[in-house]
């Protein structure tokens, strides 16, 4: 496991690197190699968690896209028959490209959130003298999914206590759909209450802020940022020209 916890700047540059390379890198074997490299890297950060997320969300999504495209790709000129099934050749290629990109981007984003805590990112942005309301919106936006999931689990827990059957995925799905809109409404209302609460904490203060622990970049952080940005430049140059 990687022990080094990077500064927000190299971590953000890592994310930028992932997003740009996800769209620019050539497809095919080279691309597949880069996906494997990223998966290997992600596995070393928080392997089990990342791998589970990929298996549970990304792979089923990719299979769905793959199946959809190989059967009904609109720009098909060549059809191939595999195991008695008539599949689109262009659809297969496009599905391969798209799914590998999805795996790449998802893995990168999951790895990003495993490399940095939202608090650390928030703390850094706050120290950079960004308006506090902007930091609040960014951080709460990032935390929204987590809070939503926690609230949903809490409701499911109480529903189960009251005797509602929530044993399988279908039952959970049905229960979720019914409470989705009221829950979203509650979450939005909660956000406005949170804004008032944080105003009470002094988030609207206009004084020159101080920092108890200034977030300073180490030489390693600077070096990693340099490497990532170098890689982005290489991607831009070779990705488009070569």
């Amino acid at each position: 496991m990687i022990r080094y916890l990077p500064h927000p700047v190299p971590t953000v540059s890592f994310l930028l690197c992932i997003i740009i390379s996800g769209f620019i890198l050539t497809t095919g074997v080279k691309y597949l190699l880069s996906v494997l490299l990223l998966l290997f890297f992600a596995f070393h950060i928080n392997g089990k968690k990342i791998l589970l997320t990929i298996l549970k969300i990304v792979i089923p999504l990719c299979i769905a896209i793959g199946l959809f495209m190989t059967f009904i790709y609109p720009e098909t000129e060549r059809w191939v028959t595999i195991g008695g099934m008539r599949l689109s050749h262009e659809g297969l290629t496009a599905a391969g490209d798209m799914t590998s990109r999805i795996i790449f981007l998802f893995t990168g984003i999951i790895a990003f959130f495993n490399l940095i805590t939202i608090q650390r990112l928030g703390s850094y942005l706050y120290q950079k003298n960004l308006p506090v309301w902007l930091v609040f919106i960014l951080i709460n936006g990032l935390k929204f999914v987590d809070r939503f999931r926690a609230k949903l689990n809490e409701i499911h827990f109480y529903q189960q206590i009251r005797g509602m059957p929530l044993e399988n995925v279908w039952q959970k799905w049905r229960a979720t759909v019914k409470i989705l809109i009221p829950l979203l409404y509650v979450m939005i209302e909660e956000s406005s209450n949170r804004a008032i609460a944080l105003e009470m904490r002094g988030f609207t203060a206009t004084a020159q802020r101080t920092a108890l622990q200034p977030d300073i970049q180490t030489t390693t952080d600077k070096l990693i940022t340099f490497v990532f940005f170098g890689f982005i430049i290489l991607l831009l140059v070779f990705g488009f020209i070569v």
């Binding site: 805590t117 939202i118 608090q119 650390r120 928030g122 703390s123 942005l125 706050y126 930091v135 609040f136 951080i139 709460n140 935390k143 909660e190 209450n193 949170r194 609460a197 944080l198 009470m200 904490r201 988030f203």
Partner: peptide, 15 residues
């Protein structure tokens, strides 16, 4: 004003 719901008062920017 210190509201009763302390969850709201935690900023989320400090670890």
């Amino acid at each position: 004003y210190v509201l009763p719901n302390s969850d709201m008062l935690i900023s989320g920017v400090k670890d």
